[in-house]
């Protein structure tokens, strides 16, 4: 089973849920796909035993051959090329590696060269979780190729938890697209609700079954999320209370199930519930 943990809003607790859930279950593989700021490592350990670089193709212009016809500049949909005083400038950070400029050049003045985009690292951590993380290099803008490569590491014999990037744009979609189920993590605030709506609409669009975990839950404000979920018929899988000790553990890089092992049962229940939903769906088909 492949589960992606995502949220519309950043900082709601995707990593908290991913890591604590991973520690509560067996036969788990954890993928940190929040490649702009992977942070699972701070909770499960930063020792890595494998590293692979990720490259992508960007254009290199042979100025000797270039006739300054400008076809490549006009073709580029992403403004990654400019023509300044008869010279084509390349801005590789914003290039999407589509290869169009190379094809359109009438005098073959454009070659493609490898540019390092980021890396994948495999972790050996103290909890024994099979852990891969993707990391985008500083200054790079497109994280999707890193996430694609990260997903190649998916072990089909394990239960895979993917910690996605916040938001509802390409990187989040890439992480979630072929998941069996998605957990939307939110918080009981108007911001949390607003972005949960977007995330839930994304799920409907992708046709992925999903449920909600409310983090920093408080009796007085949970209705903000509960009313919405009831109206949209979205299952609330779990509430993680807003208590000082959880925040304190977090700030020390300790997943709270380590100090509160009974919470492992809560995550096991969530997992069982998700499995039930998926079985029902399979039987329905």
């Amino acid at each position: 089973m492949k589960l992606t943990v995502l949220s519309g809003k950043g900082g709601t607790g995707k990593t908290t849920v991913s890591v604590n859930m991973a520690l509560s279950l067996s036969k788990i593989q954890l993928l940190d796909a929040d490649v702009e700021e992977p942070n699972c490592k701070y909770f499960i350990g930063t020792d890595f035993d494998k590293e692979e670089k990720i490259y992508r193709k960007v254009p290199k212009v042979d100025q000797e051959k270039c006739t300054a016809c400008r076809k490549c500049v006009d073709f580029c949909e992403y403004n990654a090329l400019a023509m300044m005083i008869d010279e084509v400038l390349v801005f590789p950070e914003i290039c999407h590696s589509c290869g169009g400029c190379k094809r359109i050049c009438p005098v073959n003045a454009i070659n493609e060269v490898d540019r390092e985009l980021g890396n994948l690292k495999h972790g050996v951590n103290k909890y024994g979780i099979d852990f891969w993380q993707g990391e985008l290099n500083i200054g790079e803008e497109s994280s999707v190729p890193v996430i694609e490569e990260l997903k190649e590491k998916t072990n089909p014999n394990k239960n895979v938890i993917i910690d996605a990037q916040p938001g509802t744009t390409c990187p989040t979609i890439e992480a979630a697209a072929d998941s069996d189920y998605c957990i939307l993590v939110t918080e009981p605030t108007p911001f949390g609700l607003s972005d949960l709506k977007l995330a839930s609409e994304l799920m409907d669009e992708l046709k992925i079954p999903h449920g909600v975990i409310i983090n920093r839950a408080e009796e007085d404000s949970d209705y903000i999320i509960e009313d919405f979920c009831e109206e949209r018929n979205i299952n609330i899988l779990l509430k993680i209370p807003f208590i000082r000790d959880f925040a304190h553990l977090y700030s020390n890089g300790i997943p709270f199930v380590i100090d509160y092992p009974t919470w492992k049962d809560e995550f096991k229940k969530v997992f069982k519930e998700i499995r039930g939903v998926l079985d029902e769906k399979d039987n329905g088909n």
């Binding site: 990654a80 090329l81 300044m84 803008e141």
Partner: peptide, 12 residues
Amino acid sequence: GGAGVSAAQLIS
């Protein structure tokens, strides 16, 4: 993306 590059092109 690339608004700055595109704008620079226009100015030039």
